[in-house]
Design a protein around this nucleic acid. Structure first.
Lengths: 333, 333
DNA sequence: GGGGCCATTGCATACGTATTCACCAAATGA
DNA sequence: TCATTTGGTGAATACGTATGCAATGGCCCC
């Protein structure tokens, strides 16, 4: 480090000056900063990290479905990726992004190797699949936040939108339009905790309205366009009557509407459709999708905020990310 | 490092064993690996990086338009982000993602601080804006690749799709449909080198077809939906006749079609519209967009490949990323 | 004038790894 | 038998920073 030499001080003083320490007199600090500026000098992050044992870096791990075709990423995650990156950056943290398969072990990979101060997990809502890894993370005192509904024993590590309320909003809207035979396309199993909560909210409104939910009007479906299409085809094949569809996601809704129209069913004339997420394509779809928007901007902020709180040892709040009804033409009645 | 102690060897041997060096006998290597596995041990990346002076990390910097509203990111970049991340990961590199404003100086920030071995720049196609930074990068022997058309003096650092050919494909398609008065919405200025090339390809086909391009049929426009809308409004206001529009991007095309329909112009009946990029929303738009697809998967691969070649000191190829015509309903003639 | 305090600075060390060099035992060759 | 090679290992060091501790000098106060 020849900055020290050029400024006529010790390396220790240079280090302090560059970090803005109060221990250095204003005069020397400015002299050092000036020399550093002229040399276009930057502190070596690896050395600094090694010494201080922290990295000012967060890792964002996005679950990659090994069965999907990899060419398209879940658009909702992409939105989140954008907001998370921006928020991390705003807080002075770098963001390491990686698509991971469930089988790989990100736990050791990022936390133990001192590559990141904390981890954000996207797409790991179904924590049952990797319960032992979750436990390992907790036992290792790792800092992490998962985008997904609370697990009862580890509430601090989870954040999600108010899925139940979202389901309620959707149901209320459809009821107000006079729809009575409303299909739910999505899963109610433990494997899809978010879908499940959306369904619960949805169902609770139906009950309040005195509508009994017909079990036949629920079709299992994962979060893919083609799955939505298949779900509707199955439904039409079975011949059950319905006048509306609440889809657990926009991707599903897109598939559902395509399948309906392909069979000559008018949307929204014959059947109203509501989605969930408000992905970018939702507004452009034909017809534009009525949907429940998750506030991704706020979600990104809260994820990063929570994680940083955890890292700093501050207590974390436990709010849910609010949802909002976006009315477009896919169910104008 | 107590692995050394537990395995009864020196720290040096442990280091060698963990890196898979041939200098260690098979027996000791396996013993060490076993101990490490049991302790769930990972080498500290900061220490390793510091010592070896390389990070196995790439930085992806995405230009953030300070004037835009930040809530939506250019969807084309998001697609690229996905493919780049995946390819980097496949090559054993981590990816640092950051949205940067032009004013900040990513150059020093990432390259000089040893935070990444190389940089990928997205959204910096208009290199005129930051020419001196570009030069600084070159002079500092930084490893970097820019997504954008060649700059003549620095071809190795640039990669783009075959914009000219894309413009040709669009023009050919519209001509085949019998369109003659074709508008170009986009810029021909140096500030938008990609748009400019697309225009050049487009125009060359018109000339081959014996159609003289009417200068009045070009409207300046940057890469935003609202800009596309405004462009069409201006055009309609001026009252020039046209039967087709070639938009320099899908975002523009979306705005253009919205504006046309709002004024009662039928698309594709009265006017055919072609876009560029094939963003995810293009297929879902009403009407589905005919567009020129850039092969983002390949683009991601090539960007990472080029950068790694540069880092390794290997020669880089200079191919363009191929484009492809995707015909949908927005210009069925 | 002397003691004590504060503001600055330097010295020395540690962070955890990779690598050079030296070393040793065993094997090989003469 | 001894010299020489070879394969395997350890000791020592450097990477560039942050920080505890000691040291220095100036200043104030009694």
């Amino acid at each position: 480090m020849d900055i020290a030499y050029l400024a006529g001080v010790s390396q220790a003083t240079v280090s302090r000056a560059l970090r803005g320490s109060e221990l250095v007199s204003k005069a020397t600090r400015e002299r050092i900063l000036e020399v550093a500026r002229q040399l276009n000098y930057r502190t070596d992050r690896n050395a600094a990290n090694l010494r201080s044992q922290q990295t000012q870096t967060l890792a964002l791990l996005i679950y990659e479905d090994p069965t999907s075709d990899h060419s398209h990423i879940n658009p909702f995650f992409l939105s989140m990726l954008g907001t998370i990156t921006r928020e991390a950056s705003r807080q002075g943290y770098d963001l390491l992004v990686s698509f991971q398969q469930l089988s790989e072990d990100w736990h050791t990979e990022y936390e133990l190797s001192n590559r990141a101060d904390g981890i954000i997990l996207l797409g790991y809502g179904n924590f049952l699949q990797y319960e032992e890894k979750l436990r390992a993370l907790v036992e290792a005192d790792a800092h992490f936040v998962i985008w997904g509904p609370f697990s009862d024993d580890q509430p601090d590590h989870f954040l999600s939108c108010d899925n139940r309320e979202g389901g309620r909003l959707a149901a209320q809207h459809l009821c107000e339009l006079g729809r009575r035979r409303i299909v739910f396309v999505g899963s109610r199993s433990e494997g899809f905790p978010e879908f499940r909560l959306r369904f619960e909210g949805f169902r609770s409104v139906l009950e309040e309205q005195g509508i009994e939910f017909d079990e036949k009007l629920q079709v299992d479906c994962d979060n893919q366009e083609t799955s939505g299409r298949r779900a509707i085809e199955l439904l039409l094949f079975r011949g059950d009557e319905f006048d509306a569809v609440f889809c657990a996601s926009d991707l599903i809704a897109i598939g559902v509407i395509q399948a309906l129209r392909a069979r000559g069913v008018d949307v929204p004339g014959d059947v109203s459709v509501v989605g969930f997420d408000d992905i970018p394509a939702a507004a452009y779809f034909n017809p534009p999708l009525t949907t429940i928007r998750q506030n991704t901007r706020l979600a990104g902020r809260m994820l990063v905020g929570r994680l940083l709180a955890q890292i700093a040892g501050r207590p974390t709040d436990r709010e849910l990310v609010p949802v909002e009804k976006i009315v477009r033409e896919s169910c104008s009645g």
